[in-house]
Simulated assay, not measured.
Amino acid sequence: MSNEDRVALSTILHWLENYDVLKAGDIPPEAIGGNSGQKSYDGVKASRLNMIMLDKAIDDLPIELRALICSRYKFRRYRRETLKLLGISVPTYYEWTKKAIRMIYKDLNGIKDKV
Rank of each mutant, 00 (worst) to 15 (best):
K99G: 02
E17G: 04
G25N: 03
S40A: 13
D60T: 00
I32T: 02
M53Q: 08
E30S: 15
V44P: 04
G87R: 00
I32A: 03
K23R: 14
R76K: 12
K112Y: 12
D55S: 09
I88R: 00
I104S: 09
P28K: 01
D20T: 05
N50T: 10
P29R: 02
A46W: 12
L83F: 03
Y73T: 07
V7Y: 05
V115E: 07
Y19C: 09
D60E: 10
L9F: 12
R76Y: 08
W15Y: 15
I111C: 11
I63H: 06
P91A: 02
M51F: 14
L86H: 08
L86Q: 13
A100L: 13
S71G: 13
D113N: 14
T82K: 01
K45R: 15
L22N: 07
L61H: 09
P29A: 04
K106E: 10
V21C: 01
K98C: 12
S47N: 12
M1D: 11
K114L: 14
N109P: 08
I52N: 11
K45P: 10
E17S: 04
A67N: 01
L83N: 04
L22S: 06
I88Q: 00
S36A: 12
N18R: 09
F75G: 01
A67E: 02
S47T: 14
G43M: 05
D20W: 01
Q38Y: 13
Y73L: 05
R72Y: 01
N109K: 05
S71Y: 14
K74L: 15
M103K: 12
R48N: 07
K98F: 13
I69P: 06
K106T: 02
E17I: 00
E4G: 04
L61D: 10
P91L: 02
L65T: 01
I12K: 06
V21F: 02
A24N: 05
R80Q: 11
L49P: 00
G110A: 03
I104P: 15
P28Y: 05
A8K: 10
M51E: 09
L83M: 08
L108M: 15
A57Q: 08
V7W: 01
L68C: 06
T92C: 12
N35G: 13
L61A: 12
M51R: 12
K98T: 07
